[in-house]
Structure formats: C-alpha cells, structure tokens
Simulated scan of single mutants.
Amino acid sequence: MGSQLLAEYNGAHQAVRRRCVVTGGRGFMARHLVAALLRSGEWFVRVTDLTPAIELGRGDTEELLGDALQDGRAVYSSVDVCSLGQLIRAFEGIDVVFHTAAADPSKDNLELHYKVNVEGTRNVIDACKICNVKRLIYTSSSVVVFDGFHGLLNANESVPYPDKFPDAYGQTKAEAEKLVLKANSLNDLVTCCIRPGNIFGPGDHVIPILDHYGRIHFIIGEGNNYDDFVYVENVVHSHLCAEKTLSTKEGAKISGGKAYFITNMEPVNLWCFAYMARTELGYKRPLEIRIPTLVIMPIIYVLELTYKLLLHHYGMRQPQLLTMARVKYLTLNRTFSSDKAVEELGYKPIVSLRDGLRIAVESYIHFKDNVLF
C-alpha cells in the first residue's frame, strides 16, 4: 500500500509537494478542510473514512474533491481508526495528519466514544510514529473543559480539565486530547490540538434544526447565556495556521504539545444567534416560548429513565431529542478566548459571524431546493 501511495503521489500534479491525511475526512468540518487543502495547490490529500467507497454529494467542495480524485491530487481510503493496521497503510509516505475522526456527539454511548475517540486516537498516534509522520493536528473541542455545572466566560487554555463531564463525548475528547499533547516530541512527532467552539456553516446540522422549528423561538432557562459560535472556514483556517506554525523549528518549539481555543472572537447570546438565523431563513416574527429550567429538567429526567428501562427490557433506543446534558449546554455560558491562537498560531477569523450565518443559510436554502451551492 505504501508503494501505491507513492505512485499516486508521483503521478499527481508536479506543484503538489506535501502529503497529508485527513481522518474522518467525510465529516462536516473535514470536507471543508479537504477542500481548502486542495484549493491551496500545495497538497496531495488522502481522505480516510469508514465507508467502503466515497460517494460525492452536491456543492463546490464536493466538486473540487471529485476533480482532485480524478486527476490524482487526492485519493480515498476506507479506514477505521480502531484498526492500527489500516492506519499504518494509510499513513505510509505521509508528512502531516489532520485527525478529525470522532464518534457521533449525539450518541451518548461511553463504550462507543471511548473506542473511537480514545483508542482510535491512540492508534493514530502509534501509526504516526511508525510511519515517521512529522506533524499531527488533532481536532479537539471546547467541551473538554466544560463540566456541565459551571459556566465559562472568556475561558483560556489555563482552565483545567474537569473531574466530571456532562456526556461521553466531552469526557473522551478530553482523554484523547491528553494523549495527543503527551505524544509531542520535537525530535520526532510534533502535535497540536485545536479546540473549536460550536461550528456552523454550509452542510451543518444547526441551520436545518432551526428551520424545522422556524416559527417557534424556544428559549430554555433565563435566556441570558452566551456562547461562541465559529464559522467552519475559520476552523479550517486555524488548522492550516497550526500546520504552518508547527512546520518551523521555532513554531514547533512554541506550539508543539499545546491546545488552542478557536472562535469567531464574537461571543453572542445563544438565543439571539438562533433568532438571527431564523431571521435569515425568512421567519420575521417567530412565536417566542420560554421554558424554565426547573420545569424541563424533571421531565427530561423521567424520560431518560424511562428510555433506559425500555432499552434494558426491549432494546429500544432513546430518540435524539433534548437530554440532561444538552440542556446544560443550552443554559450555561460557554465563551472562550482565542488570544493565544492569535499570538502563537497567527490565527485570525477570516469570515465574520454575520457573513458566515448568511452564507450558511443561503447554502442551506439552495441545498433544500436541490440547487447546487
């Protein structure tokens, strides 16, 4: 497989010099990352994911990938991060790995999340060392410092990992991040972790959900909590900034083994953001419904307990609706400082919150109407 990879690379466009892998490359943010890497003209990109074969969707990013697959600037490999052997074959001849693969955050299954997020990341690190990969950039999350009980306002990287987490996703992403940071070594593999806020943009799940409840503006709790939404292209940009920084000796010395919060640097009231999105979608005066936390939490507790009993006796799965953990995410402040990323990675948002929201909604509407976006 290594000789095949080198042959693919040698047959690619001569301007392509560096070789990278994007794990979980068919995910939301990863698709935009792959497109940016290809658009730069500097990379040969191996896209890995679980599906046996790649199925391209609509949109500019998919069209760009399709062209790259045809002319050899990109290849697709079916790889399970839980398989070290598959990762080793995919990483042979590779300089940089962007590790974005993760278990579905909506499924609060500790066994699944531990297997994919923790064991999978450990396999990625081992494969990088075996294949002499130079740099590993891990897509972490701002949830790694959120305990579900205390709000966070302009939190920076000095905030420690909590003892407890509201869900399996946050817990296992934190454990995976620790592994990546510990793996950093200036003489061999240089690592870095990117902690985005709530990512939105073309192809996300945020806008469709808000559209589904478009005429009703739900507010849970007091409605005065702030959050950090970040446009997907800004998250992509932060990954590229991290790679560029780690590629120099000085940058590797400063940023190697560190984690960085990435936001739009425009903290916003969570419910105002939802209202802004609905306005962009064309809902001028949605009906506002406020639900006190003290009212909804007991109801959710009973529902979760009921579904656990049904799962135990009948194998029935819990619908992906509101959960105790999600209410905590929706009712507490969660804003983060990107000053460290600005200073050390040279990061700066390239798309504003308002412009990003407009682009995301326009893309969603086009997709909804089956028009290429």
Rank of each mutant, 00 (worst) to 15 (best):
Y9N: 07
A127I: 04
L152D: 00
K284Q: 13
G2E: 10
Q86K: 14
I219R: 12
I54G: 03
T331E: 05
V75T: 14
I289N: 06
V230H: 05
Y114T: 11
F373C: 03
V232R: 03
I291W: 06
T139K: 02
E344Y: 05
F273I: 03
A174C: 07
L186F: 14
T51N: 15
F91L: 08
S238H: 04
A252N: 06
D369C: 13
V22A: 01
S238V: 02
V116S: 03
I88Y: 12
G93L: 03
G41Y: 09
E343R: 13
D67L: 11
Q14E: 15
R290G: 05
L322P: 01
N224P: 10
D204W: 07
E63G: 13
S77H: 12
T323F: 07
R46H: 11
V180Q: 02
E63D: 15
T23M: 01
N10W: 12
L179V: 07
L309Q: 14
E222P: 12
M29R: 02
L287Q: 13
G66H: 07
F367V: 06
A155C: 07
H113Y: 08
V144K: 01
L311E: 15
V232L: 09
S40A: 08
V116T: 07
T139F: 01
Y76M: 10
I209N: 13
R17I: 07
L6G: 07
F146G: 01
S352L: 07
G197N: 02
N154T: 09
A325R: 07
R89L: 08
E55V: 13
I194M: 05
H113D: 06
R285M: 10
V116M: 05
Y301M: 12
E157G: 03
C20Y: 00
P319F: 09
C241W: 01
S3P: 06
H217A: 10
Q86R: 12
Y283G: 04
L112K: 06
Y76E: 04
T306P: 11
G346E: 03
S255E: 05
E222V: 08
F98R: 02
T263I: 01
V361F: 03
H99Q: 12
D227P: 08
G59Q: 07
L50A: 09
Q70Y: 13
G201V: 06
S238M: 04
M324A: 13
L303S: 09
L65D: 00
A101S: 08
A68V: 06
S106T: 14
N269E: 09
D355F: 10
P196F: 00
I291M: 11
Y275W: 14
F149Q: 15
L246Y: 01
C128T: 05
K115S: 12
Y226K: 10
L38N: 00
G346T: 06
W271C: 00
G221S: 09
K348I: 04
I88H: 13
T61D: 10
L321S: 15
G197F: 01
C272Y: 15
S77A: 14
P286C: 09
A127L: 04
G66F: 05
K258R: 13
V116F: 06
R89Q: 15
F367I: 04
